[in-house]
Design a protein around this nucleic acid. Sequence first.
DNA 1: GTGAACATGAGAATCAGTATCAACTAGCGC
DNA 2: GCGCTAGTTGATACTGATTCTCATGTTCAC
Lengths: 137, 137
Amino acid sequence: MTDGHESAPTGVRRTTRQRTAVSSALAETGGFLSARDLHDRLAAQGERVGIATVYRTLASLASTGEVDVLLRDDGESVYRRCSSAHHHHLVCRECGRTEEVTGPTVEAWATAEAERHGFRDVRHTVEITGICATCTL
Amino acid sequence: MTDGHESAPTGVRRTTRQRTAVSSALAETGGFLSARDLHDRLAAQGERVGIATVYRTLASLASTGEVDVLLRDDGESVYRRCSSAHHHHLVCRECGRTEEVTGPTVEAWATAEAERHGFRDVRHTVEITGICATCTL
DNA sequence: GTGAACATGAGAATCAGTATCAACTAGCGC
DNA sequence: GCGCTAGTTGATACTGATTCTCATGTTCAC
């Protein structure tokens, strides 16, 4: 973890066929995709991109806030092209449909609660799941 | 996935040495433990319990609400003996110390927000992380 | 005490994600 | 356009958590 092979980038981020492919595949799909899904989707489109590269690209996009990462219940991470403002998700457990929701209420509550316990540098995650109107029918 | 070997239990839950061991090891420790941690701890106490059994027992305890499951950022699940009332966690990113917090505010907000989008059968998870007072020093 | 349903455990299998490292390439200066 | 080199890629091995398999062991109602 100290100094591997792919470390020490001088900050330059090159444009490659693979990165463009991952980015646009993500943009085409509204919803959340796992790294595998994305890899399969690219393969189906004839874009040959290694799974390792997909993971690397997603991690990179996530670190710049261009995509949103969600850790599903089964432990797999899913990614989505996302507005960069802080927000939360309302996910349908049936079809996976996602709505973005914002909540000044929660933000305030989380911060207040954390401070009450003496915690600093507070972050929070809120996920709401349910069955959406369409799936209820 | 239709009908395995360990399925079709008629609802009976037997008391075994292993289940008791897992339960009490969990009770002795205030904080969160991963299945491995628990397994190691049991081994150290001379309790020979298979890792598969630890997982099974934890899953069973979790399903009855006797323990609380948290999916850590690295994807590993951690378990803790927990009050059964609905609540959330405030976790220190440094030392792992955990506080239980309740928030009628969030509950209400989550439900309202979900209903506004036409979602039913709503559940939510809220995790707040930060650096606790002790680690700040 | 008996028997059948339930539980266990050792190890194999699975699965997401990361590390390795030789080969490749974007983009800069010329 | 050419060459250089740091940044990238990808096939594959590896790791680590969790689940599956199934023969064997236990619990508990009767």
